[in-house]
């Protein structure tokens, strides 16, 4: 009996020390992580925004849109930059996408994901988003592999779930942009 207590106490001591050290490291790195995330988003905003001034951040609908920024040119809203939420193969996907008021995708960027390196991770590259550009307005957003050109379909094979996650988010964002239809 006494032996069991000693073992339990020793194990508890090891866990306590480990927890303390981790809390310390977390205290040091957490502000840095937050800063680099904010910086990455700022960088992405400036890459994704082609023209006009970015307005005040507006909260999203709590479902597929986290928040959005109306972008105006000469007092008139021309497009929206949205932070979109979706699910991929390895977990949640966060996308930043720029839509015209008619729902057309101007550009998009995958901000956060946990996809498989070499397969789903390819969605992080700017080339991946080219196939979505110009869709959502007159043309529908390609949400199935069969809606893509043979060349693009080849590029998403092996990572179909990632592709579905990205395209569904963009489709949702496109509909959301249409609904906003030029309002702030």
């Amino acid at each position: 009996m006494k032996n069991v207590i000693i073992i339990a106490v020793k194990l508890a001591v090891i866990c306590l020390v480990a927890a303390f050290v981790l809390a310390l490291v977390n205290g040091i790195t957490a502000p840095q992580i937050a800063a680099s995330k904010a910086q990455a988003e700022l960088d992405a905003l400036s890459v994704i925004n082609k023209a006009g001034t970015i307005g005040e951040k507006v909260e999203g609908d709590g479902a597929g849109v986290n928040y959005y920024f109306p972008v105006s040119d000469g007092g008139k809203v021309t497009n929206y930059i949205m932070s979109l939420k979706s699910v991929g193969y390895g977990g949640d996907l966060i996308l930043l996408a720029n839509f015209k008021t008619n729902g057309e995708v101007i550009d998009a960027k995958l901000m956060e994901d946990a996809e498989t390196p070499g397969l789903g991770k390819k969605a992080e590259s700017p080339e991946y988003m080219v196939k979505f550009q110009g869709t959502g307005g007159d043309k529908p957003v390609p949400v199935k592999k069969t809606m893509l050109d043979a060349k693009d379909a080849d590029a998403v094979s092996g990572a179909t779930i990632t592709f579905t996650g990205v395209s569904k988010a963009l489709e949702y964002g496109s509909e959301f942009a249409k609904k906003l239809g030029g309002q702030k």
Binding site: V25, S36, A40, A114, T116
Partner: peptide
């Protein structure tokens, strides 16, 4: 935590 703070691109690439 250190990787996420100081080498975010590597952290993003290695993921899970």
């Amino acid at each position: 935590m250190v990787m996420e703070a100081y080498a975010p691109s590597l952290y993003a690439a290695l993921g899970v």
